[in-house]
Structure formats: C-alpha cells, structure tokens
C-alpha cells in the first residue's frame, strides 16, 4: 500500500471522526455534564442533515448551517419540555422525539427518504473553489470539520464556566443540591439540551454536505457510536479542565474512526460498524463495574478453594 493511499485513509478517518465528534461533544454536554442520556440524538442528527440539505438545495449554502442548528435547538427543546414539564421519563422522552422525527425528516425531504446534493452548492463546494491552486487544495472537508470542532470546543470551555454553565453542571452532578438551591433545574436542563442538540444538528448537516447526499438512515445508531467515542475519550482524558476533556472526547471520536478504518482494511465488513460501537459502549460502561466487583469475586473464589 502506498503512502498516499494510507494518507487517503487517514484523511477520511479524520474527516469522519471530526464531523461526528460534534455529536460526541453534544453528548459530552448532555450525557457527561447534564447526566441525561439523550436518545433523540439519532433523529436530531438526521434532522440537521435534512434541514441543512434542503436549505442548501434551495440555494443558501451558508444559511444551511444555522438552519440545521436551529432545527437541533427546536428538537432539543421538545425533548426537554417532555421530560421537565410533562412528567415523561428522560429516556422515554428521547425515544418518543426520535420516533416522531422520522416522519418529520421525511416530510422535510419532501416525502422522500433520499436527497442528492451532487450538483448543489454547499459550504464544502464553496471552500473547494476557494482552496483551488493553494497547497491546501482538496482538504476543505478536513478544514471545515476542524474549524467547526475548534469553535464548539472553545464555546463549551467558555460556556461551561459561566454561571449558567456551572448551574447546568451542578444539575447533572448533584440533583439533590440543585433541588434545594436557587437554580431552577427545569431551566438548566432545557438550555443544556437545546445547546447540545444544536451541535448534533450541525454534525448531521456537515456530514450530509460532505457526503453530498442524505438518506433517512444517516443518523441511525449515531447515539451509540458517539457514546463509544465519548467513553474512549474519557478513558484517555477523564480528568482535568473542561477544554482538555472536550479535546479528549474529540480524540476519542478520531481514534474510533481510525480503528474502524483499519478494521475495514483487514476485511471486516462495513455493516459491522454498529455492532462494534455497541460492544465498545458495553465494555466501557461494564468494565469499571466488573473491576469494582473483582475483589469480591476473588474473595469468593479463595473461600471456595478453602472449601467453605
């Protein structure tokens, strides 16, 4: 295999890893900070992709990005309202919104389950044209993803240290404390989910535009994939400042994609991606649990040997 072929593979892994790491950063906010497992992530990712695509096809490549993010905010708001104001369990609220979004997404795409953007002006084609004849020609996918990720990390690092950010973190960290304090948990949960889903929408929008197509399944399994990346990232940089941890989960996402790319080269069929991500999530969550159970298992086995 030639060096340029390897770089090609690495570049694809980086692009995919970075683009999807925006969803991982969304879960970093909702799952790690707010302690809400937002199962509407799949649908919201697809929503960002479809809304972004439709707006771009309508001839507004730059507008497509804020539009996709706004759609994400709306979706996050509905998930938040269901769980904070209507007494619906937070997992169930995510699943309900996710299911509803399937229909919404098909409606957005004009009753179709596939949209093609081969001839559409997107942010990527614009930058492709801009970068032509420069040393960076052909790297627009990577650069756009990198810029988006950098902006989101900077935003999170600043935002989570504001009073609102601290209140959001406290809501996830010690709900008991928040209940008897002057923080309104309904407000913090709502803001947290809105912001997180804006990133999920952005992630979907960028992936669809770089692939030049959207289909209704673009976001399926995304929540597990992102969780796997998040958990990989946290094992590398579990402690430290918010910025460091955010960079850690982005690295997690890239590592996940690199490993997956290598596995594909070793003839693992592409359809295995979702099973692999499921197994990673299981290992990452069950691992620490089993580790904590280990001393007791050892004692039991020792006791068994002594014939007690």
């Amino acid at each position: 295999m030639s060096l340029s072929a390897i770089w090609g593979l690495v570049q694809t892994a980086l692009e995919l890893g970075l683009t999807c790491s925006l969803t991982v950063l969304a879960l970093f906010l909702s799952y790690s900070m707010l302690n809400v497992c937002d199962l509407s992530t799949d649908g919201c990712f697809t929503l960002g992709a479809t809304v972004g695509a439709v707006v771009a096809i309508a001839g507004h490549p730059y507008l497509s990005i804020p539009a996709a993010m706004a759609a994400g905010v709306l979706s996050g708001f509905i998930t938040a309202v269901l769980q904070t104001r209507m007494g619906i369990d937070s997992l169930l609220a995510g699943i309900i919104v996710n299911t509803g979004l399937y229909s919404v997404n098909i409606a957005v795409m004009g009753k179709s389950s596939l949209l093609n953007m081969n001839k559409t002006e997107t942010v990527f084609t614009r930058f492709h044209a801009l970068l032509e004849n420069t040393p960076l020609a052909g790297c627009q996918d990577l650069l756009i993803a990198l810029a988006a990720v950098a902006l989101v990390i900077v935003f999170l690092a600043l935002f989570l240290r504001t009073r609102l950010g601290l209140a959001i973190r406290a809501t996830g960290n010690n709900p008991d404390m928040v209940r008897s304090s002057s923080i309104n948990p309904i407000f913090t949960t709502t803001v947290g989910l809105c912001v997180a889903n804006a990133f999920t929408g952005l992630s979907g929008c960028l992936l669809a535009q770089s692939q030049k197509s959207v289909n209704i399944d673009i976001g399926s399994g995304m929540v597990t994939l992102a969780l796997a990346s998040l958990l990989i990232g946290q094992t590398f940089m579990g402690r430290g400042s918010i910025a460091k941890r955010a960079v850690g989960v982005v690295l997690g996402s890239i590592i996940f994609r690199l490993v997956y790319t290598i596995a594909l080269r070793l003839n693992m069929p592409a359809f295995m991606l979702k099973l692999v991500s499921s197994v990673i999530v299981i290992i990452a969550i069950a691992g620490p649990y089993f580790k904590s159970q280990l001393p007791m298992l050892r004692r039991r086995m020792a006791a068994g040997k002594e014939g007690r």
Binding site: R163, A170, N173, N174
Partner: peptide, 28 residues
C-alpha cells in the same frame, strides 16, 4: 454532608454557584 455541594465540580466553582450575582453568562 454530600447533599449540599457538587462533588464533580471544584471548590471554587461550587462557591461561584452559591455566590450567584452577575448575569447568567458572566464568569467568576
């Protein structure tokens, strides 16, 4: 004693929450 403070946040951040004041988007 575990009920009144957020274990995953620093002493400074906990105090900042308790102090309130400033706008939602202000830093300490």
């Amino acid at each position: 004693p575990m009920r009144g403070s957020a274990p995953g946040m620093t002493i400074e951040e906990n105090l900042a929450l308790a102090a309130g004041g400033g706008g939602w988007l202000s830093h300490v």
